[in-house]
């Protein structure tokens, strides 16, 4: 893939030459999408933020090895997901922070919920919105690969092929993950989808 087909790859080639302005441009462009992905995978906003910084630092460190073989965003999200999985593994090795622990009241539910995260946020943020809360809960209940696939799918220009590369699985498996994830979400959000409450949500 030629660098001129992907402006981000062209920027990354400039980063490879030590251009900090190009790196800043990439960070500015991707900080929010990367943070959105990490925030909905890790339960803690501060940890997600630290990890997002680490993702971009890793991009900078790996710049000298960068080859234009795929879209920059694919490479970036692969790094983000790998670091995120490493963090989840690290946490799972410590019982106090275990993500595998079941909910004290409902053993079918994971202990990882977004309530704690939301308590750490300013009270007038989106978490006061019941519908948003329900969507976040539904997303959090999905298996990691389904959730990541759904969140990447949410990115406007992310194709099935790119998502498959990031997840490291086949195209058909990726389509299946997204389909199953969406079906689960539709099932969990059915009352909200049918009542049309979604029309009242704030637009970004």
């Amino acid at each position: 893939m030629a660098a001129n087909l992907d402006p981000d790859a062209a920027l990354m080639l400039r980063v490879k030459q030590g251009d900090m302005a190009a790196f800043e441009e990439l960070v500015e462009k991707y900080k929010q999408p990367v943070m959105n992905l990490l925030f909905r995978t890790l339960p803690d906003a501060t940890e997600a933020e630290d990890l997002a910084q680490h993702v971009f630092l890793q991009v900078f460190k790996s710049a000298h090895r960068y080859r234009v073989s795929a879209k920059f965003s694919t490479w970036l999200y692969t790094i983000a997901r790998n670091l995120c999985l490493n963090e989840i593994r690290r946490r799972s090795r410590h019982p106090a922070d275990s993500l595998d622990a079941t909910h004290p009241e409902n053993e079918d539910q994971p202990v990882r919920q977004y309530e704690d995260t939301k308590n750490a946020l300013p009270p007038d943020l989106v978490l006061r919105d019941e519908l948003t809360h329900k969507i976040e809960e539904a997303l959090a209940s999905l298996p990691e690969n389904q959730r990541t696939a759904i969140l990447l799918f949410r990115e406007d220009e992310m194709s099935y092929e790119e998502i498959a590369k990031i997840l490291g699985c086949s195209l058909s498996a990726t389509k299946s993950l997204i389909h199953r994830g969406r079906e689960t979400l539709k099932l969990k959000l059915k009352p909200y989808l049918r009542t049309g409450v979604w029309q009242e949500t704030k637009s970004r």
């Binding site: 800043e24 943070m35 959105n36 906003a45 997002a52 300013p122 959000l189 949500t201």
Partner: peptide, 28 residues
Amino acid sequence: EIRLNHLLHHLPDAPLPSNFTARVLSLA
């Protein structure tokens, strides 16, 4: 499908500090 897409696309952005880029650049 349409409503689910709408919901997903209108999920609020994760909170991000204003000095995030500056911190990343400093680390870099």
